[in-house]
Amino acid sequence: MLVEEMMVTDVITLKKEDSIKNAVDLMKEKKIRHLPIVDRTKTLIGIVTDRDIRSAVPSIFCIDKQKEFLNKPLETIMTTDVITAHPLDFVEEVAATFYKHRIGSLPVVKKEKLVGIITQTDVLKTFVELTGTNQPGTQIEIRVPNKPGTLADILQQIRHFHTNVLSVLIYPDKMKAQSKIIVLRLGTINPNPIINALKEHQYEILWPNLSGYHNG
């Protein structure tokens, strides 16, 4: 999935001449934590986060200084070296950027103009959609030998049933190094016919497993 499919395009921004107080109020009102700073041509020139403000604000004991601080223009505290995303970046790249730089949101820039913003929550939502857990379904787990053609064979078995596969995840088997675990999310309330067919083909179903706990 691409950033342009996940990003919010209706971005709330301020100008560098606006006061810090403007930013504080706007963040509170809109319940946001990141404010891109743009110029008249919508070119991105900086970003201000709630963290920037908190770390710059003088101690609450000096009320005068605090007032003076809040009246300063945003350009005095904004970060100008902004990490950005491009509309054609992939969700995996963006997730890695968040992780690496420990940041919560990325302005999306195309030809220097701000066209959107993407937050960790947007990315997380996309990952939830990728696992298919946002649609009604049943999850089954299959232990398979780690060799080519296995997934195709499993899907071949499922083809006979009019059941939608909502997602497929494959991860290494922690118990057995030579095998992998395939997690399928099926759009059905009754996975039994599929489970039986897979068992007939000698696949090991880890769950659902009526005979007890597979790992206990």
């Binding site: 009604p136 049943t138 059905t188 769950w207 659902p208």
Partner: peptide, 8 residues
């Protein structure tokens, strides 16, 4: 809903 339909 970890495994059982509908998952929610």
């Amino acid at each position: 809903g970890r495994y059982l339909f509908p998952g929610t």
